[in-house]
Write a protein that binds this DNA or RNA. Structure first.
Lengths: 346, 346
DNA sequence: ATGAAAGCGCTAACAC
DNA sequence: GTGTTAGCGCTTTCAT
């Protein structure tokens, strides 16, 4: 192996420019204390030599960290994909590098990843996705995050509360109410919910909104089937199979996220049921493909990319004494997968 | 602000464990030269104190870098999402942090991002996605990558050649041949291709395979419409509109990636054409939603996640004198969007 | 405005 | 096996 000592250092460009290493540093990092003439020259020489400062040395020496961390359950989940896209966008725009980690929906792993990010001295950590209810690891995470913040690190979460940090919160409750009202207004009374584990705050909140809408219509969520499966496409399929088997009278299904709704649609197709003729289906999130499904999915739009942007922007601000909250907008998007219920067969 | 000096250092755990800083370092980094007893004790103390080594200091001091970079056009594109998922998976498994950057399909920006990654002294850079034909910036990228490799960095690319590095290459040509053969075997003769810019190697290769299949059937790609638009969903919609307007006799459309196929389906739906009854549609890639579209999309499956995994694994291996190539498998996935052509109307 | 020099926290020689 | 120490490449006082 040849290598390793070829890389340019600050001193190389300083020498070439005929100035001290200190001056060169100031010129390149844009700090004050150099004449414009020198600054200009140094930058020229550096560009010409193709010099790029070593981020590790820079950070170690006291410069602010130039990277941020993003924690998602799984980047392949379209909800997180779009959030990541937003985070990446503002990261690039601010000259920050973004490190993305999977938690794989595993609390233990979430803790490991948080620690890795802290070890990397990232400037900020963005945590996306519902929290878990594993009290023990959650406490550890909270504690580590606390320490991280005390030493100058910044944290923002998306879609979860209870971590004592700045947060971007989709209005899941209002959204849940909204989509449920829509389905009710169509005339449906035999409704089923296809949900992820209630222990996810996202699920709990959306369900709470649904309960409000039902109540206003004189119904009680207690009397309505809420099928819990994994908060994924496969979970949606399984849940829908259960609905079909156990509640054949259902005329409308509300899935608590689009991914599950896609699974629901698949299950229905497999059973030869027409949507929305035989049964209506609604989702939640409005992921990019929702409008391209067939039938195009009625859902609640959440500005996911924007949520990612907001979260990073929030984290980059001066810390405030009390955690800040940003509640995002949501809007009902009615497409082709919902319609009035079929006339009762009897 | 309180902060900043609270963070634990190696010396803190060394003192607490009653050993030298060197011993502590060895214990924690797992190098040889410490008795098991001491190693154990140090690790215990560190864990108990919640110490995590500063990655920047560690890397600067000569330890190998613990992060890798991944360059994608746009993480929201499902093709890249799945590749990223694979890269993240093996990254986590190897204890490596993954920095993801968007190029936004912009050559200038690609160069900027490559330089950022190099400045971060990542251990390896994975570049996913077709190359551009902007000769000038491509040359700069190649040159920077060259220098990076000479100083010990590793590089692997996915789906592009011509960069003189290790590469994971989907067999686009064979795939293009395969999907075209399928459509021909159904009896279609009035075919159109919906493609991204031919300047993308991916597009060129897939088209080359299609040409082979057509030729074997006694047709020439010269006589067949190849509509070029952006290699995206929107591009697919626009291209399909052009096909409908300019080539009304077409009975089958082959989109050169699934994202475009989704756009094609949308255009067809808007025009009230039934798939596959009136017209057949095929895609390429088999992204996760392909099977959930309606009709479920006939396409060529590429193991995207696995390609991401392979690329990182390749990059992490000992460098070889000559660039290595891994050609991936592909398989035709026939679903519901293709069928024999309708009987001629005339 | 400019330069000399003291670290940042760690690893890797190098002694013992 | 263990400890001492010289850097890694940079930013930042602190003199000048």
């Amino acid at each position: 192996m040849p290598q390793q000592r070829a890389r340019l250092r600050l001193i190389d460009v300083a020498e070439r420019a005929g100035v001290s290493i200190a001056a060169a540093s100031r010129a390149l990092s844009g700090s004050a204390g150099v004449s414009d003439a020198i600054a200009e020259r140094v930058r020229e020489v550096a560009a010409q030599m193709g010099y790029v400062a070593n981020v590790h040395a820079r950070t170690l020496a006291g410069g602010a960290s130039t990277s941020v961390g993003l924690l998602v359950h799984e980047i392949g989940d379209p909800y997180f994909t779009e959030i990541a896209s937003g985070v990446l966008r503002v990261g690039a725009q601010q000259g920050l590098t973004v490190q993305i980690c999977h938690t794989g929906r595993d609390p233990e792993n979430e803790l490991v990843q948080v620690r890795t990010l802290i070890a990397n001295r990232v400037r900020a950590i963005i945590i996306a996705g519902s929290g878990f209810v594993d009290a023990r690891t959650q406490a550890s995470v909270k504690q580590d995050l606390q320490a991280f913040q005390e030493t100058g690190g910044r944290v923002a979460v998306i879609g979860r509360h209870h971590l004592g940090t700045d947060a971007v919160l989709p209005d899941n409750t209002a959204g849940g109410r909204s989509i449920t009202e829509h389905v009710l207004s169509l005339g449906h009374r035999q409704i089923a919910f296809v949900a992820g584990p209630r222990t996810l705050t996202t699920v709990a909140d959306r369900l709470a909104g649904a309960a409000q809408a039902l109540e206003a219509a004189g119904l009680s969520i207690e009397d309505i089937p809420v099928i819990e499966e994994a908060f994924t496409r496969e979970g949606g399929t399984q849940a829908m199979q259960r609905v079909l088997d156990d509640h054949p009278d259902v005329t409308a299904v509300i899935a608590l996220n689009d991914d599950m709704a896609i699974g629901v649609l698949a299950a229905l197709r497999a059973r030869g049921m027409a949507v929305p003729k035989d049964i209506s289906v609604a989702g939640f999130d409005d992921v990019a493909v929702a409008e391209h499904l067939s039938p195009a999915l009625t859902t609640v739009r959440l500005p996911m990319a924007e949520m990612g942007e907001q979260a990073l922007l929030l984290a980059l601000k001066q810390p405030s004494a009390r955690p800040r909250r940003r509640t995002t907008t949501h809007s009902l998007v009615v497409r082709d997968s919902t319609a009035p219920p079929p006339r009762p067969k009897r």
